[in-house]
Amino acid sequence: MSIKERVQEELEALEAILMDDISVTYDEKGCPKLIKSTIFPSTANEVNKQYVCATLEVRLPEEYPDCEPIVQLRNPRGLDDSTVNDLYKSIKEKCTEYLGQPVIYELIELIRESLTESNLPTCQCAVCLYDFSDGDSFTKTQCFHYFHSFCLYNHLETTKRHYQEEQDKLPTWQKATKGFQAICPVCREPINCDVEELKTALPPKDLENAQNFEVTSDLRVLQDRMKQLFSYQKSKGGIIDIEAEENKLLLITESTDEGSGDTNADPGPSDGALEADIQRGQRYDYPVHSGLNYR
């Protein structure tokens, strides 16, 4: 049996077993180009208890299965870097073990078993930046991002309040008709949450045990340095205030028309002189934004 026949036989078996859970992309020659499968932990029919996932992408060299496939894990959700690195090591070992044999199904099962064992988010809450501890109440969004329920509730309440404040400033004809839509703080995808249920969640343990913020001597030194930088930038013509930031267009007050035929017209500065003018903030209606200058 040729290599192409062996690969085609493996792919047909995978599609028969996994059906819609796997997709195969072919190139113009009819050779498999990319194999993708999004893998979840085994939780029977309790989909709402699948807290982690990852997408397996496999590219097959022409010599496969007599050489190892090119494997990548995309969009690992709920997994920290160390867990992903351990998965890659296991994948490498499995590919070496099955050299010369079909290995894609074995890789899928390997990843599924690993996700089942690690079916708790090992990342941080994107709101408070603390880890998830035993006993913490957390929420998984439809886009597989994780938050302490307490933190997510406070975030949604804050964003809803800001949204309403902005809507109140608008005339009636400009106001949104659909109302507030909660979005994921990480990827900005629309999410649906039971706010009343989130409201009852207790604060995470690490947040409760966190020390109160205090201004240390090192922080005061840093604040003084920032004040000096602020004054220095302002003295050099840097635009600091918000109103000036909204008017960054540079308007040239003098110009010449080479095609005017006026032989007495000022030909204008050379490129070097113009650059010097720009740096000095001359020939313009207001100083040019120079940015920080550490010289």
Rank of each mutant, 00 (worst) to 15 (best):
residue 172 T to F: 13
residue 8 Q to N: 11
residue 91 I to S: 05
residue 177 T to R: 13
residue 231 S to A: 14
residue 94 K to T: 13
residue 25 T to C: 02
residue 146 Y to A: 04
residue 106 E to T: 02
residue 269 P to D: 08
residue 279 Q to K: 15
residue 282 Q to N: 11
residue 11 L to A: 04
residue 27 D to T: 05
residue 236 K to A: 06
residue 106 E to A: 07
residue 136 D to S: 09
residue 281 G to P: 08
residue 224 D to F: 01
residue 84 V to W: 07
residue 226 M to H: 10
residue 283 R to M: 08
residue 169 K to W: 02
residue 76 P to A: 10
residue 91 I to N: 06
residue 5 E to W: 00
residue 130 Y to F: 14
residue 174 Q to E: 15
residue 191 I to D: 05
residue 207 L to W: 10
residue 16 A to Y: 03
residue 237 G to H: 01
residue 256 T to I: 09
residue 1 M to A: 12
residue 150 F to W: 14
residue 272 G to T: 09
residue 164 Q to G: 05
residue 253 T to K: 12
residue 1 M to H: 12
residue 27 D to Y: 01
residue 260 S to P: 00
residue 152 L to N: 02
residue 55 T to F: 06
residue 118 S to V: 09
residue 64 Y to K: 10
residue 199 K to E: 05
residue 108 I to H: 09
residue 289 H to A: 12
residue 205 K to N: 10
residue 283 R to P: 00
residue 229 L to P: 00
residue 101 Q to W: 04
residue 71 V to I: 15
residue 261 G to S: 01
residue 271 D to C: 07
residue 216 T to Q: 00
residue 236 K to V: 02
residue 276 A to W: 01
residue 243 E to D: 14
residue 278 I to K: 07
residue 194 D to N: 11
residue 16 A to H: 10
residue 277 D to C: 11
residue 215 V to R: 08
residue 108 I to T: 09
residue 166 E to P: 05
residue 241 D to H: 03
residue 29 K to H: 13
residue 35 I to W: 08
residue 58 V to T: 07
residue 92 K to E: 15
residue 118 S to R: 14
residue 295 R to I: 04
residue 134 D to S: 04
residue 291 G to F: 03
residue 11 L to R: 02
residue 205 K to D: 13
residue 20 D to H: 09
residue 38 T to D: 06
residue 90 S to K: 12
residue 286 Y to N: 11
